[in-house]
Amino acid sequence: MELFTITLPASIEQALAKLTALLTDSISDDLHKAQGSSRALIRYTPHTGEIVSCEAILPHFQLASHGTAVYRSAAKAVAEFIVTEMEPHILSAIIRRKYREHYAVDAPMIEKYCHELLHGSEWDGLGTKFLDADKQRRKLKVSEEIEHYLQGHTSLHLDGFTMFRLQPYRKELAEIVDYALDEYVLDKQYQEFISLLKYFVGLQESKVPLVHLVHKGNHEFVMYNEKFQPFEPKPHSDRMVAEMLETEMNIEDMVISSLIAVSPKQIMIHTRQSDMQVIRTIETIFDNRVSVCLQCVDCSPCFDVANNGLIQP
């Protein structure tokens, strides 16, 4: 006896095989093993046209006894499929629809930002536990709606269901898209600003031969001259550049403003964290003027290895 059918989107590679496997594994865990018997009560069968059917095996299957477990396990499997396989396509469709009139929007880049927000670097420092918990929350939101739907319908078309039924889930993804666009615009503006700084640096004449920039840790730097003596740079003489730096630079990047004011011919960065964003930004702006030192005779006395910090020379 056929209980229901699920129609999958043809745009997803091997969708039929993936969903059939998820459904089969889920029913095995939630129903067959729970019955404590090797007797099968449900089977899922894939068909041409991207359709998979749920068939009850009579006379052992009893809808009153087993129906709730079947709908719950199917909803869990379909939710896993939607969040894992369909979510990138749903995000892409939301982006195209929301910004189809905005030709300057780079849709693939917005999709990349969405992926980072949902799965990537935004979760750095929190650990995979929080990332997995957020994904599980989205799956639970989807599975609850699917379970309720299957209890009253015999046909589930995933494209239509995700388009018209999963409104709370789609609203959440739409908010992710909006946030990703904001991040994209801010990053694009910052990159344009960095390019402008690089242009100004290229026009400037060098004022000092060498600057040693010692990274004390976190976002704290100390500047030394070519004799490794500390000095404080004067504000930039170009008023337009000075105002631009004051307006646009983050607090952690104010060292860049100091370097531009000094306009050194060469910059030697002494650090134990060469992959920091501010250091990469300095390398971008000053290009081949920059050298990075991880340990040398000059800077070694500055670093207190035992305390993982820095002592003044």
Rank of each mutant, 00 (worst) to 15 (best):
H148F: 07
A133L: 13
T162L: 00
R137E: 06
R138A: 04
Y169Q: 02
Y149F: 14
M163N: 04
V177I: 14
L140Q: 11
K141I: 11
L158G: 04
Y169P: 08
K141F: 03
E147N: 03
E145Q: 07
D134P: 02
E172C: 01
L131N: 00
H153G: 13
G160S: 01
A133M: 10
Y179T: 15
R138Q: 01
Y149P: 13
D134R: 10
A174W: 08
E172G: 05
E145H: 02
L158M: 02
R137Q: 11
A174F: 10
G160R: 01
K135C: 10
E147H: 03
R138C: 08
P168R: 03
S143Y: 05
L140Y: 11
E172R: 09
M163P: 02
L156A: 13
R170Q: 03
Y169S: 06
L140D: 14
L150Q: 09
H148Y: 12
T162D: 00
L150T: 11
Q136Y: 12
H157F: 07
K135D: 11
G152L: 15
V177N: 09
L158H: 03
K141C: 07
L156N: 05
L131I: 02
E147W: 05
Y149V: 05
I146A: 01
T162K: 03
F161N: 07
L150A: 12
L173M: 09
L156C: 12
D134L: 09
Y169M: 04
H157N: 12
V177T: 07
A133D: 07
F161H: 01
L150D: 14
H148T: 12
I176E: 13
Q136H: 07
H153W: 14
A174G: 14
P168Q: 03
L150M: 12
F161K: 07
V177C: 10
Y179N: 10
E145W: 02
E175S: 11
G160Y: 01
F164T: 01
H157Y: 08
L131T: 11
E172L: 07
L173G: 04
A174H: 01
I146K: 09
D159V: 03
S143R: 12
V142H: 00
V142A: 02
D159R: 04
F161P: 04
L150C: 15
K139L: 02
E147G: 06
K171W: 11
I146V: 07
T162I: 00
G152C: 15
D159E: 05
I176H: 09
I176V: 13
